[in-house]
Design a binder for these strands. Sequence first.
RNA 1: GGUGGCAUAGCCAAGUGGUAAGGCAGAGGUCUGCAACACCUUUACCCCCAGUUCAAAUCUGGGUGCCACCUCCA
Length: 457
Amino acid sequence: MQVFNNLTRKLEAFSPKNKGFITIYSCGPTVYDVSHVGHARSCIVWDMLCRFLKFNFEDNLEPGQEAHKVIWIRNITNVDDKIVNRAVEAGISPDKLSRIYTHEFWSDMTALNISWPDLEPRATDFIREMIKFIEDLIEKGFAYEVQGDVYFRVHKHKDYGQLKGLSIADLEKGEARVDTNSKKENQLDFALWKAFPREEYSFDSPWGKGRPGWHLECSTMIKSILEDLNLGSTLDIHSGGDDLIFPHHENECAQSECLSDTKLAKYWMHNGMVMINGKKMSKSENNFMTIKDLLEKYSPSTIRYFALSTHYKKQINFSDEALSAAQTGFNKLLESISKNEKEKELDNALISSFRDAMKQDLNTPQALAMLFDNKDKPLTVSYLLAVLGFDLSQKTSAQGASLNSKFDSVMRLLLDIRAKARENKDFAMGDLVRDSLTSIGIKIKDNRNDQSEWEIE
RNA sequence: GGUGGCAUAGCCAAGUGGUAAGGCAGAGGUCUGCAACACCUUUACCCCCAGUUCAAAUCUGGGUGCCACCUCCA
């Protein structure tokens, strides 16, 4: 299998680091608000990767291949200034707020049929380990304390800039658009620990009350989990959105690699950003869409199909036109395979071409095209759709959330038909509608001005 | 200002040296009382210019356009 490794900017053959295991860490959400379509894309993509790895390395081994258990780790970031600010606004504790949005996130993930990660560490459960991590970095001379803050010395890491593909000198050339922080030895240095005077959410540390820097949690949790599993200190795959490459992932690399003297991850994979109507998704510019908004109009399968019909590394533009086309197209595929003659057994040639496409850095657009080309093989097509994470039990057009609004329209229609019948003195027809609805448990009420209303009993 | 990415039909999107997959929309047809559904058929010389090659959407150079990152972000 070939994957594009952002560390080398090349397509590389994927080979697991440890015998018997494949470890993947995906950067998860900061739980301070409802999840948006960017999270949806990212989660669908990495879910698809894990499902395919399981297909390829656990269940359908090729001759001579050893089985590997796939372990997917996705974190929940529940320490963050935004969480504290929101919590203060809402008048609840930051912990409560982050738990509320964690549940919101889970419900979105469930709706989208994203499989549960094998491990889902939360930042606050690893504060002690983070402090130890920082202490060790200070001891080794990679970090320094200033007035309750602790910063990482970027210049001490020889590979700094590797993920971004730049040298430290190059990075320094970039126009500094950040407020300069005079506490740092160097502007590129980043915080491992921030003094945090607010009582709402700070933790005791050797440097006083404060909170960990954002990048630290991933490094620490990866370290702890890999140690617990006895799998060394290098992940197979670290994944996340493009926007995380710098500085988030770069800094994770720096911390971890300076501490352990080994690579943090063998392969770095990044998904492209989501655009909405051709422009960057941005809350401040009011160009924004939540997963719940999207589920109002489109089925989970449509969203997955749409997300996978573009290669994961490319930008994807969520426009109504494209999503509607995806909905129509995918429903046609499902309808078609449900109507076709049943195959007796799986078509191995098709499975094999599908797998070849997927092995080429997850070429889902090509893999999906193959399914359209093989509508006459419903058994195999359904099987392969499941490999990509489609939940076919959701049925074609029974689009969960959009059902409600459609139901309203259908009821309106039935009432119109009944009104027409009564107008024509066809009371048998009118009563048929009313009595049938009543027997289903929907009560019809005719009010004075001939406006009928309904309610579910 | 620095860096990276992308540019394929009306729209979405594969293809990375051998003569343009697939989907949506459109057109024609089979089916149908008429439709819908399904099925069949059909629609592109790949942003521009120059070069390398027997051969380029695919490689090289130069343009143009769009986007992202450099600040919290999947």
